[in-house]
Design a protein around this nucleic acid. Structure first.
Length: 126
DNA sequence: CATATGACGACAA
DNA sequence: ATTGTCGCCATAT
């Protein structure tokens, strides 16, 4: 019946993660753990990976701006995904030396505004 | 309910 | 700098 589209906790969690990733500005990157924290999910780095793994096709979420805290791309060097991600990052002038990105230089540093703005909850509307 | 898995991360050798 | 372990945590079997 009509009572079908009820968002599960998981769906809302993924929505928050995707929304956070959408805020990463072009030319910068963020680690899985960083996204998790901003999204209000401490120690939820793996959940971010899960959310990305489940991104609907054609999504506008800039998945390629999410990399490991170590500065490395999460996919194997020889994988298609790795090359695609590296390509997209370089396309926005993010330097990748020997498969690694300088976090000191490209790590996203959200404004206090954004940080205060998001975790306030209330997005679970609906 | 017990294990295994994974687009992670911190840390010890 | 690399590599291996172990901790985390939602899902999948």
């Amino acid at each position: 019946m009509v009572c079908k589209e009820q968002k599960t906790a998981t769906e809302r969690r993924m929505a928050r993660i995707w929304a956070t990733i959408r805020d990463i500005p072009q030319g910068s990157v963020a680690s899985y753990g960083q996204i998790a924290e901003i999204a209000g999910i401490p120690r939820g780095a793996r959940q971010v990976g899960y959310a990305l793994r489940h991104l609907p096709r054609g999504s506008d979420v800039p998945w390629f701006r999410v990399i490991q805290a170590s500065g490395k791309i999460a996919f194997p060097r020889d994988s298609r995904a790795f090359r695609e991600q590296a390509k997209r990052l370089r396309r926005e002038d993010v330097a990748i030396l020997d498969g690694r990105i300088d976090m000191k230089k490209y790590r996203w540093q959200p404004d206090l505004d954004e940080l205060l703005w998001k975790p306030s909850a209330a997005w679970d509307e609906d």
